[in-house]
Design a protein around this nucleic acid. Structure first.
Lengths: 276, 276
DNA sequence: AATCGAGTTCCAAATAACGGAACTCTGAAT
DNA sequence: ATTCAGAGTTCCGTTATTTGGAACTCGATT
């Protein structure tokens, strides 16, 4: 005789949903991995002991397991770095990602037509994760940002994606950001951010007016839907010294067309059956 | 007086020495993740149940934990794909990798001088993992292989790295490969493979004469050392229809110089102190 | 309505993780 | 050379998590 145990009881969950998914041992191991991955310098055992609230013996075993599994490598000087297995796992995940595959020709075309750097981003919680990128010609840095995450509130694709959400969700997320005023023009309060939403919603286009990095501008469009479970965005990015705001605006229809084209491919290929 | 607890009886141990690092819960979770990452099509719950020897309830919880941690995502149709968190972790691991950073300018120069695709690979067990790549100009596929793994025996960098090992280690690995004859010219036995080693050792250069993929040729040099704990390699790859074997050979000194230059940077920057 | 298949939940028993303390190693100070 | 301090590692009884079988729910099919 089973009753409704009701996993998500209304009152309990109001507080804070951060960092309490109760994933047991796995969660603890990943906390360690996260700390190692996020460290600027490869941490040594004692560094980790200070950063993670675990007894010596326990932490040591956790790290040992991570090392044994190849998720973490240990240098000669006993400092720890993320392991190659992560790269391997991520590479498979990336190259097999059907959404990315589907979007690739479209962003390639957008790149050909604009000649500037093009990004494909995916919404993930309060961040945008860059799934793909095509660099402008001779830029030195390569494939740098694939897999990188940025906050939603200060990026072109991020704002475009926010605007796709129902207003209540949008406002809820706006309230959750840890706003950092990266530049003069950063929208650093929920009010400023929400103030742009109406315009983005009606035009389908959002701009990053050097809001995240000085000298970097971008035009973006959101795509996807809640039903499909995919909220994404495409953008064209360029240096402010070469691309004026007006030139950005001129790409509006190209960017919108690209977003619409990806969406129609999504319907065609992901809709009927979730075939790869 | 270690007691053999239960499942792994003595006779089983003889079978296969692979996959027995005893990493407890973490290992089991990663086995699931591996299966999901390696699947061609996103598996559904029942598929996984067939592929992994675990009872329903257990497997379900393991997957739930992976999902809760963001290592796995679940599609609308209950099929599972690797999660975005993997990309994020790997991106940090990649961009923070000090060896890659150090090698980057050198392979960039090699690319400029040859005009062809250049790879940086790292030895990992019986495989080479590509740490970085600079594509030839207008190639369509981008950052495709970073993080990808290939067998040592049929790639240019792989053979070059093998040749750096002491002969006994080299022979030991040669005996362990699961040889697949990818093309006509694949070295598909330990004897064929070891037969090339002397030449590679003396010249410092190895060739992939369409041994992995038809129509793809490459010249490579190994670098690093056992003491440093890094065994790596650089290569220039090109299509056979455009690049003759002689043209490849002409790059010999460029490739060697690049390898030596990276090595001297390693000594300078990784040697004194493992500073990032 | 009944059946089947797929996915999900539950709980006592089994097992793996915990954590304090003891041990070893390394390099610096005496 | 000896001592010492700090870092890293191992051990083992206790504790908490994982396990795995079975029961349950939901949807599609007959």
């Amino acid at each position: 005789m089973k009753r409704n145990t009701s996993h998500a009881s209304a009152s309990d969950e109001l507080r804070i949903s951060r960092r309490k998914p109760k994933t047991g041992t796995l969660g603890k191991a990943l906390e360690v991995l996260d700390v190692i991955a996020l460290s600027e310098k490869p941490p040594r055992f004692t560094d980790l002991l200070g950063l993670i609230d675990q007894p010596r013996g326990t932490l040591h075993r956790q790290i040992s397991n991570l090392v044994a599994e190849g998720l973490v490598s240990v240098n000669a000087d006993h400092s720890y770095v993320p392991g190659l297995r992560l790269l391997k796992l991520a590479a498979r995940s990336w190259s097999g990602n059907s959404f990315r595959q589907l979007a690739e020709p479209h962003i390639a075309r957008l790149h050909d037509e604009t000649g500037e750097t093009v990004h494909l981003g995916l919404m993930n919680g309060l961040e945008v994760i860059y799934l793909d990128k095509i660099e402008s010609k001779q830029t030195v840095r390569m494939h740098s940002q694939v897999g990188n995450a940025s906050p939603l509130y200060c990026t072109g694709v991020g704002k475009a994606m926010l605007a796709l959400l129902p207003e209540e969700d949008c406002a809820a997320r706006a309230a959750e950001f840890d706003y950092v005023r990266h530049t003069e023009t950063t929208l650093y309060t929920p009010e400023l951010l929400l103030g742009e939403m109406a315009e983005i919603r009606s035009s389908g286009i959002s701009y990053d007016r050097e809001e995240h990095e000085p000298g970097i501008r971008c035009i973006a469009a959101g795509l996807g839907s809640l039903e499909s479970g995919i909220i994404a965005g495409v953008s064209v990015t360029g240096p402010a010294f070469r691309i004026s705001q007006d030139e950005m605006t001129a790409w509006k229809s190209l960017v919108l067309e690209t977003a619409r084209a990806i969406e129609s491919d999504m319907e065609a290929r992901l809709g009927p059956r979730s075939q790869e």
